[in-house]
Design a protein around this nucleic acid. Structure first.
Length: 108
DNA sequence: AAGATGACGCCCG
DNA sequence: CCGGGCGCCATCT
C-alpha cells in the first residue's frame, strides 16, 4: 500500500513538488494523506530507496517536517531549483501535476 | 477487537 | 496569519 505512495512520490520530477494529499490521490487513495506520511516514515526507516521524500509537502507548500529534517528538505528543494515564497514552496510554479493515475483504472 | 500513532487537511476563533 | 480542534485512513501493539 505505502508502496503506491512511494511509487507516486518517485514519479515527482526534480524541481517539482507535491502535497501529501496530491500524492495520496494520485496513488489511488484520495483522503489518505496520512498514509503518505506513514509510507514516507516507513520508507525512511526500512526502505531507503531513492524516495524523493523532500518533494512532498503539506497543503499550500508548507514544510511539515519538524526539526532539522525540515531545514534539510528546504535545502534539497532549493538545490533542485524549487521556488520559495518565504517559508513556503511556490506550488504555482513547482507544483507537480500528476497524470491522474487512478491505480484502479489504467484504462483511458 | 480496541486503543494509539502520524512529516495531514480543513474549519473556526 | 497562527493556533487549536476534529475528521480521515492504514498500520501497529
Amino acid at each position: 500500500m505505502f508502496h503506491d505512495m512511494l511509487a507516486t512520490v518517485r514519479r515527482i520530477p526534480k524541481g517539482k513538488v507535491a502535497t501529501y494529499g496530491e500524492v495520496a490521490a494520485a496513488s489511488g487513495h484520495p483522503g489518505a494523506a496520512r498514509q503518505v506520511v506513514w509510507a514516507l516514515r516507513a520508507a525512511g526507516k526500512s526502505g531507503r530507496r531513492p524516495v524523493p521524500w523532500h518533494r512532498v509537502l503539506g497543503a499550500g507548500g508548507k514544510i511539515r517536517l519538524p526539526g532539522e529534517a525540515g531545514l534539510e528538505q528546504r535545502l534539497l528543494l532549493r538545490a533542485e531549483g524549487v521556488g520559495f515564497k518565504g517559508d513556503r514552496v511556490d506550488m504555482a510554479l513547482c507544483g507537480h501535476s500528476f497524470p491522474a493515475a487512478p491505480a484502479q483504472s489504467p484504462l483511458n
